[in-house]
Nucleic acid binder design. Sequence first.
DNA 1: CTTGAAGCTATAGTGGCTGTAGGTTGTATC
DNA 2: GATACAACCTACAGCCACTATAGCTTCAAG
Lengths: 140, 140
Amino acid sequence: MQGHSIGLLSKRTGVKVTTIRYYEGRGLLPDPGRTGGGQRRYGDAELDRLSFIAHARQLGFDLDAIAELIALQETPHAAHGDAHRIAKDRIIEIRDRIARLRRLEAELVRVVKSCDGQSDGQPCRVLNALADHQACESEH
Amino acid sequence: MQGHSIGLLSKRTGVKVTTIRYYEGRGLLPDPGRTGGGQRRYGDAELDRLSFIAHARQLGFDLDAIAELIALQETPHAAHGDAHRIAKDRIIEIRDRIARLRRLEAELVRVVKSCDGQSDGQPCRVLNALADHQACESEH
DNA sequence: CTTGAAGCTATAGTGGCTGTAGGTTGTATC
DNA sequence: GATACAACCTACAGCCACTATAGCTTCAAG
């Protein structure tokens, strides 16, 4: 039978076979056609959509956001504002995460330094520093 | 009966009651004493340990790493190297995450800009850009 | 002694998959 | 046409770190 098997889709997109079936269950991919024996066969449209999903996932969109983006693709009129909002929300989220991670990094570097050069007999200050939030210089 | 109730521990540490019980199930907290009626009663040692766990979680350590750090606290000899390794691993992980997030941010900013100022009649380039990984400037 | 907040256990759900078990189908080769 | 075997199928359990719910019991203050 013509059409791409699920394994071929997987190879083309880098998305695992089980994950493709999971996306179908989540409604991100339509029910594909089946062979007489019940195996899935896909066309190029499904391949494109799966590529879209895979790429959006790599950019960190969650499946709900991706579902929304797909819906926008289906109704191209006036999709600009919504698509931008979703993408901009994601940018804000990413910037937030970066800021928080930077604070954590600074704190941990400080913690590790606090103990460097200590002799083996004493209790480790890394452990003390972790026990004592008061000692932190920035909140996290 | 003397000792702190689970609710008091929760208030002191900011860790939810259900989460405290979950930590107990995971072996991060010992089985506490119980009242005649079966309610948990904690001493100061447990409060300290829970504070340690809470702080380490805020710093992004996973529960396995925390279990390891707790074990190091119990055997203070030669704990330096191990504690430092765990903390340094975490720093590396954080730096990695920051680097990846920065690439994502740059990519998304580019995607959003690619469509700014487009008229409403055309299909949105944000959606196109998401569909087409080839168009990306950095890998992610 | 009554009231009601706080405690208890057990179980299911979250997100985004991954892994397993146990069976069936498609295709290439003989 | 037979056979072998990779690839496919469904259904369900597990991952992490919790969170939520239901339905019950206990503690402590008034």
